[in-house]
């Protein structure tokens, strides 16, 4: 190693005023490539939005804005509306967040405050690995394992116990199918836990130790530190993390298609089969002929999902950033 440097130094040294600028061409090329990569993303996104919107335009022209709040999806009479899917998408995603939130809080706080050092890494890695499982695997697990368990042990007692109660009972109606909104929400929850947890951990770790130690110093318990220092400090970022998880749950397709029951009917019940925008597109797309109203309605659905995801993502970005600034 030393020898090489020595020899090159001896023979290859050129006075600075004679040196050619080899960066003369490569630098603009490199910068140009970077610009191209950056602009490419913008163009791609713009084209996707434009394509979805234009593709779905005939459906919008046919049904008008009624498309948004029509609860019918009838390929026979060609009456299409997005309400059932929009409702199913939001409902299942909200169930997922409600289930995932306490779990993520628990894991994140355990990892940052309680876990003994040897346990931290295995649990952290396990949570990360959950994010690496392909969604089709979650779908099959949900379909073959969770749905039968729900149908046999969870849904019947809940329907018998809570079904007859007025108002609240509306959430627990129908035959115990196993599949349905609640099962879909559970599977989604498992899928978004890693994302929410990872961001929670990051937030909790960024809480200045001085704040926490001061709190401990005046005699706070672990729970009090958690409630009064850590969580308030990272509150907006945590809400942002939840929104990010919500965004992921909204667009999940394969796993949901397996377990949601795929019925285009509106129902308030947690156990009733439903449909999400993504699952409907996955189900109907192969049999939607070119130029048909069905295809344009599906593209319009895609556009709506895009808009919903965009809003959620924009909110989450704004919230995450507000703390950093």
């Amino acid at each position: 190693m030393d020898a090489t440097i020595d020899s090159s130094g001896a023979t290859g040294r050129i006075p600075i005023h004679q040196a050619k600028s080899i960066g003369g061409l490569s630098d603009p090329l490199f910068v140009g490539a970077l610009w191209a990569s950056g602009i490419f993303v913008l163009i791609l996104l713009g084209l996707i939005i434009a394509q979805l919107f234009l593709g779905g335009l005939p459906a919008l022209q046919e049904f008008g804005l009624d498309f948004l709040w029509t609860a019918s999806w009838n390929p026979v009479t060609e009456k299409y509306g997005a309400l059932v899917m929009i409702y199913g998408t939001l409902f299942s995603a909200v169930i997922a967040v409600v289930v995932a939130l306490p779990l993520s809080f628990g894991i994140a706080f355990f990892l940052t405050e309680i876990a003994p050092q040897p346990l931290k890494r295995p649990i952290g890695v396990a949570v990360q690995l959950l994010a690496a499982v392909p969604s089709i695997i979650y779908g099959m697990w949900g379909f073959f394992v969770i749905a039968p368990l729900m149908a046999a042990y969870v849904q019947p007692p809940l329907i018998d116990l809570l079904g007859p109660i007025p108002v609240l009972g509306a959430l627990f109606q129908g035959p115990p199918l196993g599949s349905g909104m609640f099962t879909a929400g559970l599977i989604l929850a498992v899928m978004i836990v890693p994302f929410i947890t990872a961001m929670f951990v990051e937030t909790l770790e960024s809480v200045p130790p001085m704040l926490k130690e001061s709190a401990y110093g005046v005699g706070c318990t672990t729970f009090e530190v958690y409630r009064n220092v850590s969580v308030p400090y990272g509150r907006t970022a945590m809400v942002g993390a939840v929104m990010l998880g919500l965004g992921r749950a909204l667009g999940e397709t394969m796993a949901v298609t397996f377990v949601i029951g795929n019925a285009t009917r509106l129902s308030a019940s947690l156990f009733a089969p439903g449909a999400t925008i993504a699952s409907t597109i996955a189900n109907e797309f192969p049999e939607a002929p070119i130029g048909s109203l069905k295809l344009t309605s599906l593209l319009q659905l895609g556009f709506i999902l895009f808009v919903i995801s965009f809003i959620v993502l924009a909110l989450s970005r704004a919230l995450v950033r507000s703390r950093l600034d």
Partner: peptide, 22 residues
Amino acid sequence: AATSVQWPAGAGAKGNEGVAGT
């Protein structure tokens, strides 16, 4: 009658294997 209809009752599953499995 169509390749997909608005089913008045029941639940949907994907493919023959989905129906048989459910």
